[in-house]
Design a protein around this nucleic acid. Structure first.
Lengths: 177, 177
DNA sequence: TCTAAATATTTTAAATGTCAAGTAAATTGA
DNA sequence: TCAATTTACTTGACATTTAAAATATTTAGA
């Protein structure tokens, strides 16, 4: 996964560390701007570290991948299956990608494609019994991994982090919407 | 990019929302556990949303990709170039990946590979003059994008978020180290 | 001095991801 | 009723990513 480790963030860090704390508005405005870059890089590094850890464990323990786990997770709570477009939306990836991941899971016998009764263009993807059982085992361990990885932040810290992320996400959504 | 949108997080959400608030220790412990999952999913969704936005803008504005931008960024602050292994460490990707990205940038004339004088196995990658100029233009816009995207969080919120992420990252590092 | 082990990078295969084009089907509106 | 437009999904090309293996070189130690 790429991370935009922009060097100007480092430059910002160096500028901040040697700032004479003069406090003039322009300096403070610049500091605030660079804070965004540093924050972004830290968030990216943190998310990637956790994600890489989870990917490696899924591969080692179950011989599967995170996108496949993700798709199974979406289907687990949809007893009647989901359409490809809906999977695309929930997984936040393009339709072509969902096609490929569903193909792989179908080949493994974990999901099945069912023609849509009302729209011959569409198909629904549904968990097989085996897929459901496997998913339940993976989900149990996955949950323990996440609990362990987030164990260094106490309850109030988690509340704060959740709130700040929600605030950030809302603003981002408005910026690009 | 996959996200481990585990359905047990949703189950946690539903359980939490209909909890009778009895407050017994087991219920509260379970709630705290599920909070980790929800937090992880929110963090993942938020990071991916920002990352996707930046990727799309880099492609639209400069016809380049985030990993290539990332590599250029690493080189911008290394006037003498960097070895492949060092790029791999800084970009947090495997060596094989760095080879491919460097190949692409070299083909575009943005970087050049130089044989290492002290180790014939090694080579150093260095920005060309054109690469440096292009990177500076991209970095300027990239910084503005990040500032805009993080504009919804005030200075104290950014400080808090940064601190919490640092705490989280430190714990994760210890968990997997 | 020489061999074994370690290191640096590349290559290969597989998986995931986007974008654009293609195909089939549904919807819209004249 | 029928043609144009839109929609659902697949396909193909390209880029990125990993893990493992291969190749070349350096280092360590007997």
């Amino acid at each position: 996964m790429a991370r935009d480790n922009c060097s100007s963030a480092d430059a910002a860090g160096r500028a901040l560390s040697r700032s004479d704390d003069s406090g003039d508005l322009e300096t403070r405005a610049t500091e605030a701007h660079h804070e965004s870059l540093r924050l972004w890089l830290r968030m990216l590094a943190c998310t990637n570290l956790i994600e890489t850890t989870i990917r490696q464990r899924l591969q080692a323990r179950f011989g599967t991948t995170l996108p496949r786990f993700d798709l199974l997770s979406q289907l687990e709570r949809a007893p009647n299956g989901l359409k490809m477009g809906e999977l695309s939306r929930r997984m936040m990836v393009t339709g072509g990608n969902v096609t490929g991941i569903a193909d792989a899971l179908e080949a493994e016998g974990l999901v099945t494609r069912i023609a849509d009764l009302t729209d011959r263009r569409a198909s629904r993807v549904k968990l097989t019994a085996g897929g459901r059982r496997l998913f339940q085992r993976m989900a149990g361990e996955h949950e323990q991994w996440v609990i362990e990885l987030f164990g260094g932040v106490d309850a109030s810290g988690k509340q704060q982090l959740g709130g700040l992320l929600a605030q950030l996400k809302q603003h981002v959504g408005r910026s690009i919407g």
